[in-house]
């Protein structure tokens, strides 16, 4: 069930990419280093491993609660009646099964000025957490730092 919700999330994220949003985003300096206390560094894994690890995060979130995660992928945003959601979309080796990791940016960033454009490559670091919306449980990274990895 959770995997299906994750799939739904991924598609919602991809659908959100279609809208072009103006951006004057200035990327902050990277703060994390390999020994900066990251529990799960997805950027150190191959694309096959990243897909499997993200799948596991979404399927078995209890194993990752409170862990700090670093992920690289494309920035995505989608507007829902419940609010605006941000995510980093990670693609797998076949490039057919994109998975999205939702994140809540740290601080009070102003939309859209302080955000990258959808589709831009970003690096996200945050703490893994789950939240409930209706009858469904979703995963996200909270207090997440965001770095643009390409102009």
């Amino acid at each position: 069930m959770r995997a299906r919700i994750a799939g739904l999330l991924a598609v919602l994220l991809l659908a959100g990419c279609a809208r072009e949003i103006p951006s004057t985003y200035i990327p902050p300096e990277p703060t994390a280093t390999p020994d900066s206390g990251i529990d799960v560094d997805l950027t150190a894994l191959s694309s096959t491993m990243v897909f499997a690890e993200v799948y596991n995060m979404l399927a078995y979130p209890e194993d990752y609660l409170g862990k700090t995660i670093r992920a690289a992928g494309e920035f995505a945003v989608y507007d829902e009646p419940e609010g605006r959601f941000y995510a980093v979309v990670v693609e797998d080796a076949l490039a057919c099964c994109a998975q999205g990791l939702e994140f809540v940016p740290a601080g009070e960033l102003v939309w859209p000025e302080e955000f990258p454009e959808p589709g831009q490559a970003i690096l996200v670091e945050g703490t893994f957490a789950v939240y409930k919306q209706g009858n469904f449980e979703f995963c996200h990274l909270v207090d997440a730092g965001m770095t643009l990895t390409e102009e």
Partner: peptide
């Protein structure tokens, strides 16, 4: 189908 990622499911 109830899956939102049909192409991904079929591909997998």
């Amino acid at each position: 189908g109830t899956s939102a990622n049909l192409s991904g499911d079929v591909c997998a």
